[in-house]
Design a protein around this nucleic acid. Structure first.
Length: 111
DNA sequence: CACCTGACCGTGT
DNA sequence: TACACGGCCAGGT
């Protein structure tokens, strides 16, 4: 089924605590494929079908809301993040180093 | 079966 | 330090 890899991405994204954000590469690295960062973003695109997936907590390596354009509203992604306490300015996560949540470091090793 | 696209990341200049 | 280019992975047509 097209979702084997996607399912793992969703599993990690769901584990992301509110008020925190992570990057595609971190999730990919946690899955054991740090080079499949693009695939992670692609999975997020498909995650749109799953409202249970907080894709707003997933940003790029620079902390920029690259996928905000994929959300319904214009700033819906930023609104959701700010709603959780994450400061967003000009589609850029403030204190990205502080709110950054690394699954490989915070989450237990993959089985 | 082969080619193209895509919410990226790393390195070089 | 900032900008630009290439490369990788996965899915869809």
């Amino acid at each position: 089924m097209a979702g084997d890899f996607f399912d793992r991405v969703y599993a990690v994204v769901v584990q992301i605590p509110a008020g925190r954000v992570t990057c595609y590469g971190a999730i990919a690295a946690y899955l054991g494929t740090p080079r499949s960062s693009r695939a992670v973003g692609y999975a997020m695109n498909a995650a749109h079908n799953k409202p249970e997936i907080p894709a707003q907590r997933v940003v790029n390596r620079k902390g920029l809301l690259t996928g905000k354009h994929h959300f319904q509203g214009t700033n819906l992604m930023a609104q959701l993040l700010e709603s959780e306490g994450v400061r967003i300015i000009n589609d850029q996560v403030q204190d990205f180093n502080e709110v950054f949540w690394d699954p490989v470091k915070e989450l237990p090793p993959l089985e």
